[in-house]
Design a protein around this nucleic acid. Sequence first.
DNA 1: TATAAAAGTTAGATTAGTCTAACAATTTTT
DNA 2: AAAAATTGTTAGACTAATCTAACTTTTATA
Lengths: 230, 230
Amino acid sequence: MLSFTEENYLKALVELTVFEAESEEVGVNRLAHCLDVKPATVSDMVRKLKDKELVHYEKYGKISLTSEGRFKGMMVIRRHRLWETFLSSKLDFSWDEVHEIAEELEHVHSEKLINRLDEFLDFPEFDPHGDAIPNKLGEILLPSRKTLAEVEVGKSCRIIAVRDQVEVLQYMDRIELCINQEVTIAHREEFDGLTTITHGNQSSVVSPKLTENIFVVCSVCSKAKCTCDV
Amino acid sequence: MLSFTEENYLKALVELTVFEAESEEVGVNRLAHCLDVKPATVSDMVRKLKDKELVHYEKYGKISLTSEGRFKGMMVIRRHRLWETFLSSKLDFSWDEVHEIAEELEHVHSEKLINRLDEFLDFPEFDPHGDAIPNKLGEILLPSRKTLAEVEVGKSCRIIAVRDQVEVLQYMDRIELCINQEVTIAHREEFDGLTTITHGNQSSVVSPKLTENIFVVCSVCSKAKCTCDV
DNA sequence: TATAAAAGTTAGATTAGTCTAACAATTTTT
DNA sequence: AAAAATTGTTAGACTAATCTAACTTTTATA
């Protein structure tokens, strides 16, 4: 069984090589910075992970995950995101409180537990930050996140997450827009992308800067890429 | 913040000094046996816990908890039992599966998490093994417990709890004995304490090792110390 | 391309938690 | 009360994960 620390190294490597924007190669320094330890520490640990066949590595070279390492790292992320979803949807934690607690919960190992939790939460696709949740095989539907900016005029959707920025939340508060709310796209201006939405009894005009930071699913089928015709 | 290990020492001390049958005094050997480490290890660790003012201790003396140590140990048990309840009532785990998983979950520290969980579960009084759950102040309504080993021949009782050991639970499963079941003492052998019980349509011969780990109440008045004449 | 900068490695130290083996104190038994 | 048994302590060693400081390799740049 992997230690807390080993799991954190694998998780960081998945984040850097799978999720990070334009996945550059990962060296000792970058991983050290990401884990907030010194490069010397990473140098040692990477050797240990190589012995366990969790990473590919040669002295002075780049670090990459073996398929076993990738799977194990993916499982840590799966656990993290499922627990975040649980905290948010069942225990009413706000989106900015869940991360820290999930950092501890993600290291509880029982596979049966996490699959039961997945079921209990009704197999969610996204965590409260809008990040996709890997399935039990470690697969992730990467491109399926959809923002409010992508919803077609006339269609309705439900807000499921918001990109992790305080300003976005505060702005949303001001125009009385919140998580789980249903929103309809009334109009979208071709010229500058300004969008008129209706939500509750009100309607608001919002900019792409906002809509690109709001993640939604179809209000009928609750999927990001739905085939409903609403 | 306490480490995993320190929390386990405090938990064991609460179990030995608060919950255990006739709370004898606790020495290094007994604690070592309970934690499955060597006495030398406990000797060192107890000195460390004393420095942190979590236990009272003098060389070659007995170990006892300070009020802070007792509170912190009680919180570990509170977390353990609340998670067991969650696993059992929300995720459909059976009573003999929950202990092992809760051993990991009990070390997740957020106080807010555990209080929200308590609320989510509707403030349960007992965990799936029938043990009382300490409240957020570390208080517990200690039921006056009686074991199956203490019930007189000819009398009937009802099982309300089982000491928290996987082997006990698994053994009980095998002989089809479960919580809330009514049991009658048919016979008890003076020589070795082997007891013949009837439960449902069957009868079983069980050892003191088992009966001492099963808690019961009178099947008539539902009290551990009853005055009924059954 | 030579040199400076950046990246990476190694050696040696530290802390937490554990062990074994030898020794010391306390308690029980004869 | 002396001997035996039990209980507890200490010293020294080990592993995992970290650090600092000195050194080496690779990369970038003047």
